[in-house]
């Protein structure tokens, strides 16, 4: 669940930087599990696309709660695919 959230945050970071939707596939996704995943609280995730080429997007991000700045950190690489 946490990984899905991080992957989604990374994906949205790419589209946000692009300014439009473009289908892509996750190539690599690395997660450092900083803290045990809490239960009963909302977990949010933030992604930043820090580099973009015509083929590939590089993203870093993290998951956090109101109580904890980072419960997991993300480094992911996405490759743009052809048609949606």
């Amino acid at each position: 669940m946490l990984i899905t959230l991080l992957d989604m945050a990374g994906t949205l970071a790419v589209w946000t930087r692009l300014g439009h939707f473009q289908p892509h596939a996750t190539l690599d996704l690395r997660v450092d599990h900083i803290e045990a995943i809490p239960t009963g609280v909302e977990i949010k995730a933030y992604g930043e696309c820090y580099h973009l080429t015509a083929q590939v997007a590089y993203v870093r991000g993290h998951a956090y709660t109101d109580r904890s700045a980072t419960i997991a950190s993300l480094a992911a690489t996405y490759a743009f695919t052809g048609q949606p």
Binding site: I3, A25, T26, L27, D28, L29, R30, V31, D32, H33, A36
Partner: peptide, 13 residues
């Protein structure tokens, strides 16, 4: 037991 790191590689759709 605690998971420390995860490294996923996606090979095919």
């Amino acid at each position: 037991v605690q998971c420390l790191t995860s490294t996923f590689q996606f090979l095919r759709a």
